[in-house]
Amino acid sequence: MNTDKLIIGKKEFNSRFILGSGKFSLEMTKTVIENAEIEMATLALRRANNAGSENILNYIPKGITLLPNTSGARNAQEAVRIARLAREIGCGDFVKVEVIHDSKYLLPDNYETAKATEMLAKENFIVMPYMYPDLNAARDMVNAGAAAIMPLGAPIGSNKGLLTKDFIKILIDEISLPIIVDAGIGRPSQACEAMEMGCSAVMANTAVATAKNVALMARAFKLAIEAGRSAYLAGLGRVLDYKAEASSPLTDFLQD
């Protein structure tokens, strides 16, 4: 039995892979979720202009925790408005706060994000702020009532990997909430590395969605995240600088 649970708010998860549901066809969404064996997926909110068209909720298996994001919000007030609307649809209290007003780099506004986090936590949302990995701002998120911290590894959709690695490590060491790398992870090896260094989970979307075989890539990320978590729990072996140590016993009979 797996006793190593990820806990966000009061909810327990066995999977440490959070999947973003963007950029997939509806049919592919279900296939990817099954291959990734995730328990949490993000969604976005949009004007429902095509009444009667297929809804993504019909393609997400029951039991998956939905994490609506506030994408499109340019300030705290807009994020709060989106979160309230998302909750009204009736899929739970989780929300990924995302406040962006820079359309070139899509970098999050940590200050507005902290304000939205505080307002939503007071309304009993389980708030997971997406942020630039800054320790002081992360402490603001904790004080604002965040349930987890989601620092970016690299700009959204870039597949550039853990460009902010050292700063994410500082968050892991100093913040007691789950640290979940969100954005920028492009390869399973990068997801594995994030987990090895002690991240609690990894979120990915574009890396899977832009792969040639998305179902297989979803699987690859699942396995990499599990490998990284096991490595973290096992404790990495030590590193030797400028010397070596034999792994095999030296064949002493050749010496005589």
Binding site: A48, I56, I156
Partner: peptide, 10 residues
């Protein structure tokens, strides 16, 4: 009036 629903998104 605004009517919204969920769509795929990261």
């Amino acid at each position: 009036m605004e009517v919204v629903n969920f769509v795929g998104g990261g």
